[in-house]
Structures are given as structure tokens and as C-alpha cells.
Write a protein that binds this DNA or RNA. Structure first.
Lengths: 128, 128
DNA sequence: TTATTATTTAAGCAAATACTTAAATATATT
DNA sequence: AATATATTTAAGTATTTGCTTAAATAATAA
């Protein structure tokens, strides 16, 4: 059944297109939410730097990263927990240290992004 | 010159690695910030849905999207402005309507992401 | 002109975010 | 056992975010 337009009250509104769009979103809504959530997780200065480092080093601990990024350990730890909870990184205990590493699935999903970062192929036009 | 470690005070800390990491980040810091900023912009439920729609339709106006996503027009408008300010979308006036569309640069950067959304190839492991 | 529709802007607010400091926990060393 | 180091957790706070409503602006139609 076709749902009525609530906001587009102009006579020539393309109600069929609006309806099609609703269906298109519906069909992949869960994927869209998952992807948005993943992009949001990675779309943070500190977290992206951590991930960039972990993509090249597999034996970094919290205090290493704390030194590298010039931030307090709890701040780093909280970012790491957030990423670990979401399954994009993992850690193994080495004595009192914990070495963090990227999960294979995430490393694969973001290998192009990392390449672009190295080549400077980010959006030229984007203004922060 | 080698900078001293502030947080890693353990005897066997790998100061050279820490220093290398600092240099690696330094070398691409601007790219990292740009990319994080772009990912953050797109990493929002509503904005990603808008972009997904604009990737398939080039003649949607604010009130269309307002209907499709069941949100008030100002909310949509504010998201659009944010994306327009950052140069990933643009709009052309058609009478009282404004048709929004993706910039070519953004459409190219995110075509893989859109494909993944359609195929359901998002991170399987990620938990929202 | 007046009325209508679409859009933007502004102001206000609740929720989320990212840091801080201080305290708790875990492991290793003396 | 006592100390030291690394990490996490908890609590507090300032900033940011995304929505809401109401008002302003723009363009068209009657």
C-alpha cells in the first residue's frame, strides 16, 4: 500500500518516487545503520590514529600509544575499550602490558582507507 | 632528536619504535584528520541514508527526504547544510524546491561503501 | 497584493562524547 | 609481604550534537 506524503503537499510531488525511496531504505536499513555506526566509530581523530598505528604495528600497548599520541593513558584506554567492544580490535596480555591488534575483518574492510591516507587521497574538497 | 617517553617508564620499553610511530603519525597527520572528519560526517544514520538516496536519485528535495525518512524538514535541512558546507553534496534551485546531489568526488570515494551496504558486506562482528 | 509552499535560520534543550583526576585492579619485581 | 608499573574503572565536567519549535526568507500562484 502507498503511504501518504506528510510534508510534500505540492500538487506535483512524485509520490511514487517517494514511496520507492522508502522501500529502498527499508530494504537495507539495517545495513545502513551498521555501516553508519562503523564509520562513526572510526571517524574520530584519536581512534583513527590508533587504528592506523595498529595496522602497522602489532605489539603496541596502552602506554606506548599514550606516549605516541601525547595523551593520558585513561583516554587511550577508553578509546580502545570502545573499539574492542565493537569487535574491530582485540588485545592479548603480555605480563602487565596488553598488546592490541586489528581484527582480520576490520583490517580487510579498511585497507583501502589506510592506503588513501598514506597517498593523501582523502576528499580534497572537504573542509574541517 | 629522540623524544623521551613520558608514560612508558618500564625498562624494556621500545623507545625507537615509539619514536618511529610518532614520525609515522606526523607524516600523515593532516590526512588522518581529514579522513577522520570525513568518516565522522558520513557516520551518522540520517546523513548516510540521505547520501544513499542521493546516490540513486538526483532530483530529491528537502521535503521529499523529510517524507521518506519521516523527519521534520529543519532536521533534514540542517544535515544537508552540514554536508554542503563540507563539499560532499550540492543543491540546485528548481523554483521553491532545491534538488540535492552528490559531488563527483564524494560519489567516487564512497561507491565501494554503497556497494557494501547493498550487499550487506558491513562488519559482521560489529555490535551497535 | 495576498496566500501558499518550500526552505532556512535561530534559539533552546536533552543526550552523547571525550576528556580529566582519582581510585581500583592486575601482574611482576624486590 | 611490600613496591612498582600498566591498565581499567568510575565520577565529574565541558563541549558537541541532533533534534524541536517558532520565526524568517524565497519563490510561486491566485
Amino acid at each position: 500500500m502507498k503511504t501518504k506524503a506528510e510534508n510534500c503537499i505540492r500538487a506535483f510531488a512524485n509520490l511514487e518516487q517517494i514511496d520507492d525511496c522508502k522501500k529502498q531504505i527499508d530494504a537495507v536499513e539495517n545495513n545502513l545503520n551498521l555501516m553508519a555506526s562503523a564509520l562513526d566509530l572510526v571517524g574520530n581523530n584519536v581512534r583513527l590514529k590508533i587504528l592506523y598505528l595498529l595496522n602497522q604495528h602489532t605489539n603496541l600497548c596502552v602506554c606506548d600509544m599514550s606516549d605516541i599520541l601525547a595523551m593520558k593513558a585513561p583516554a587511550i584506554s577508553q578509546h580502545l575499550r570502545k573499539m574492542k567492544d565493537r569487535g574491530i580490535i582485540n588485545g592479548i596480555k603480555k605480563g602487565t602490558l596488553i598488546h592490541y591488534y586489528l581484527t582480520a575483518e576490520f583490517a580487510d574492510l579498511f585497507k583501502d582507507i589506510f592506503k588513501r591516507i598514506e597517498k593523501g587521497e582523502v576528499l580534497k574538497s572537504i573542509a574541517i
